[in-house]
Amino acid sequence: MLLETPRLQVRRFRPEDAPALAAYRSDPAVAFYQGWTAPVSAEAAAALVREFAAADPGRPGWFQYAIELRAEGCLVGDVGVKLHENLMQAEVGFTLARERQGQGYATEAVRAVLRDLFERRGLHRVSAECDARNLDSARLLERLGFQEEGRRPANTWMKGEWTDDVLFGLLADRWTRLAASTG
């Protein structure tokens, strides 16, 4: 399974990805809005990579795509897709190494995944949520066409505090209209 963009390969995880996964997921700034706690040990990263590599993107549940820079052949992040039981809806999430943020890689990778979900697999809806303080992630979702659908105040207990969740959604017909208007 491989999704290609001009700069990226969005692909299945491989065993050799474990050190890079451990490195970017161990960065406290990267982990701040995520459900894991930094640091992520080499052993934990290797176990995650095995779990990610064994998952089936066509079955309900989470599947993690590795984001690789084509020019450098290095892992810089991941995109998660949680396929709903009905196989017509999914949730997405993403993580990118701090030194690779702000260069459009996450937008490019998530767009490739959305294109696959909507255009090849025929999904009806994709949703996402983020910590209300995570403005960069919210802006990325909006750039891709997601619309804010609501806010759940003090909904998630994470890392010793209650956080607000912002909910986003993107329907297939909106994706199609946006894709047609951008060429």
Rank of each mutant, 00 (worst) to 15 (best):
Met1Cys: 09
Thr5His: 11
Leu8Asp: 01
Leu8Tyr: 09
Val10Thr: 05
Glu16Gln: 06
Asp17Leu: 09
Pro19Thr: 07
Ala31Gly: 04
Ala31Pro: 02
Phe32Asn: 00
Tyr33Ile: 06
Ala38Ser: 07
Pro39Ile: 11
Val40Phe: 08
Glu43Pro: 04
Ala45Leu: 03
Val49Phe: 11
Glu51His: 06
Asp56Trp: 13
Pro57Arg: 06
Gly58Thr: 08
Gly61Thr: 06
Glu68His: 04
Glu68Gly: 02
Ala71Gly: 14
Glu72Val: 07
Gly73Asn: 10
Gly77Ala: 04
Asp78Ser: 05
Val79Cys: 15
Val79Ile: 14
Gly80Val: 11
His84Ile: 10
Met88Phe: 09
Met88Gln: 12
Arg98Ile: 00
Arg98Ser: 07
Arg98Lys: 04
Glu99Cys: 10
Glu99Gly: 07
Arg100Gly: 04
Arg100Thr: 05
Gly102Pro: 10
Gln103Leu: 14
Gln103Val: 01
Glu108Asn: 06
Val113Lys: 01
Leu114Gly: 03
Arg115His: 12
Arg120Cys: 10
Gly122Trp: 12
Leu123Ile: 13
His124Ser: 12
Arg125Phe: 10
Val126Met: 14
Ser127Ala: 14
Ser127Pro: 03
Glu129Thr: 01
Asp131Leu: 07
Arg133Tyr: 03
Asp136Gln: 13
Ala138Tyr: 11
Ala138Glu: 12
Leu141Trp: 09
Glu142Trp: 08
Arg143Trp: 10
Arg143Thr: 12
Gly145Pro: 05
Glu149Ala: 12
Arg151Pro: 11
Arg152Val: 06
Lys159Ser: 02
Gly160Thr: 04
Glu161Val: 10
Glu161Gln: 15
Thr163Met: 13
Asp164Phe: 08
Leu167Trp: 15
Phe168Pro: 03
Phe168His: 06
Ala172Pro: 00
Ala172Ile: 05
Thr176Leu: 11
Thr176Pro: 02
Leu178Ala: 01
Ala180Ile: 06
Ala180Asn: 12
Ser181His: 14
Thr182Asn: 11
